[in-house]
Design a protein around this nucleic acid. Structure first.
Lengths: 350, 350
DNA sequence: CTGAAAGCGCTTACAG
DNA sequence: CTGAAAGCGCTTACAG
């Protein structure tokens, strides 16, 4: 690999000049520029990114931490990553995947992160990732609320989870549903906590008594039940315990599919017997399934690109003021998996 | 940020010793180790990854290039990435996402890649990514065959695409199907080329005349038709042109869903009227859908981890001989979307 | 087991 | 517009 000295010597200029030709931080005369470029091509020379980073203190990479152990990420993650990668590329940043669960990293922070900043997806109540980032002083933005420790002003991008749950409940009760079952995300995720609170509020608003069987949490990713969450809860609540549920809200596409499967097995159908509402999920895919699933579009890709924009502001790449909290809008996409309760409020009696 | 000199001074040792405590390349006495560690903790010191990389010539990161512009990646990509990230973490490597299409990178290789090696998913006939890697002399392995240029011995991991297509065709013809439609991947991907060849062979084997409407290619990712590929071809061939297709082979889950949707709209059903076979796709998801989809498990996660293993051998991280070509097995998962042709060979007669 | 010194390949004031 | 020199924060022979 040719280095800057080789080029400088052959082109008859100083290393500083070669450096400027590539970094374009100072103008170089046309003749010199051309000569340097020609020699570089001959020698197959390309500036060493690492050496450059050492002095500029910039790696031009951002870290993306996704809280997954076994890595079954859903379409939401998929689209989110897309948004991040695409937006980051605009500013010349690469994306470093950092998804190993803390416990499994033998020597966390054995060396400093080679990143300029980080994006933390799905923060949890006690989030080691965030502590680590603070400790290493790497700027970050979280996607999802973090429990404020009072010490640091967090930068976040988030959906309006409160609004989302209220809207969904309004939508379903508008169809006459009063026996809802909400399959929430993992218990310790802050998004989950926000949603549960909102769900309780919604029940109160519609004067529905909040019962224990109405809210469930996705099992830990490491457990066996993780993959069959939707199926299991549906069979348990509707099949075994005969709860009179008429509408189910599923946390994501995988859960929704799995609920659908259980409903079919129980000899019931959607939306005739049970309405099924999915939070997020791939729009194109939800549409292709029969019945097509009514759901809330969380705009994961937008969440991704917004989080990058915020980070760029934090890094000083983007100029101008920027709010610490950005809310990405969401809206209900009506398809055919939700319908009025058969016979109106029939399910309430008995 | 504290640096190595600060620690050395405060601990009363040389920088070299501090370095050794962290790198563990040479033993240090217990007392010195403890003192250094204590001081480091006090100063919140962590070795600078970049500075280390400059001298060791190792970034401890591998690049992952996925050929997607608009980033609608399927479950296959999802699982593949999982496999890569998990396996890489075992060797202490991080994964750098490198998915920006070449055309959109303003100044490709303006600086050297800060990676030790790369994994190239889904190589194409003329693949710029591969040229770039060659040029920058970064070791890489491809997932999928590459057209051998005769100059370099490629390292690849792949499914046995020939076997796969033959197996699928055997399976379907075994059910009496003779009018197949194959919705292949993008035209310029090498996997697509392999499969088309195999499909022609299979038709010959079963003495079925190969007709133009039997093989289709996924549109370019940038085109509008990309997302509706399966739907479009199904409606066009079965609806408009009334081709007597009885079995459809879909390239991936998204395509399969979209075919399913078209079939439903045409008033037909799976598997009664049309058998649907999906190559790859999320096993858990395929299972949850109704009808559950029969498909070929390509083991994307295994493809991912194997490719990392090969790369580690190339980088000298893993010792011992290793084949240049690794084939990951695949097998048919029978579910309920394929069945015998109604009335045996009825579909052959006009 | 430890230290002093050179060097990894760049960029960046400083001077002209 | 260009050059000479210092320095980014580590690791690594070499010597002891």
């Amino acid at each position: 690999m040719a280095k800057i000295d080789d080029v400088a010597r052959l082109a008859g200029v100083s290393k500083g000049t070669v450096s400027n030709v590539f970094s374009q931080k100072r103008r170089t005369s046309k003749s010199v520029t051309e000569k340097v470029l020609r020699v570089s091509r001959e020698l197959n020379y390309v500036p060493n990114h690492i050496a450059r980073s050492l002095v500029t203190k910039k790696t031009m990479a951002i870290g993306l931490t996704i809280p997954h152990g076994n890595f079954f990420f859903s379409v939401f993650h998929n689209q989110f990553i897309n948004g991040v990668v695409l937006e980051a590329s605009i500013y010349g940043y690469r994306v470093l995947l950092d998804m190993i669960p803390i416990e499994e990293v033998k020597t966390p922070s054995l060396a400093s992160y080679p990143i300029d900043g980080a994006i933390v997806l799905g923060p949890m109540e006690q989030d080691e990732r965030i502590n680590l980032l603070h400790q290493n002083q790497v700027p970050f933005v979280t996607v999802g609320q973090i429990i404020n420790d009072g010490l640091h002003e967090a930068t976040t991008v988030n959906n309006d989870n409160n609004r989302i749950i209220l809207d969904i409940c309004d939508y379903l009760t508008g169809f006459g549903h009063r026996n809802l079952m909400f399959l929430n995300a993992g218990k310790h995720m802050t998004v989950s906590i926000e949603r549960t609170k909102a769900f309780a509020q919604a029940m109160q608003k519609h004067q529905i008594e909040l019962q224990p069987h109405m809210v469930h949490y996705k099992p830990d990713i490491h457990s066996d039940e993780y993959m069959t969450y939707g199926y299991d809860e549906t069979v348990r609540m509707l099949g075994e315990r005969k709860e009179k549920v008429t509408a189910i809200i599923a946390d994501d596409d995988r859960t929704a599919f799995s609920v659908l499967n259980a409903i079919n097995e129980l000899g019931l159908s959607v939306p005739e017997d049970i309405s099924l509402f999915v939070i997020c999920g791939d729009l194109s895919m939800m549409h292709q399934v029969t019945p097509s699933l009514t759901g809330m579009d969380l705009q994961p890709s937008e969440l991704g690109s917004q989080s990058v924009k915020q980070l760029m502001h934090k890094l000083g790449v983007l100029e101008g003021g920027y709010p610490n909290h950005v809310t990405v809008s969401s809206k209900i996409i009506e398809r055919s998996s939700c319908s009025p309760v058969f016979g109106g409020n029939e399910s309430v009696s008995k």
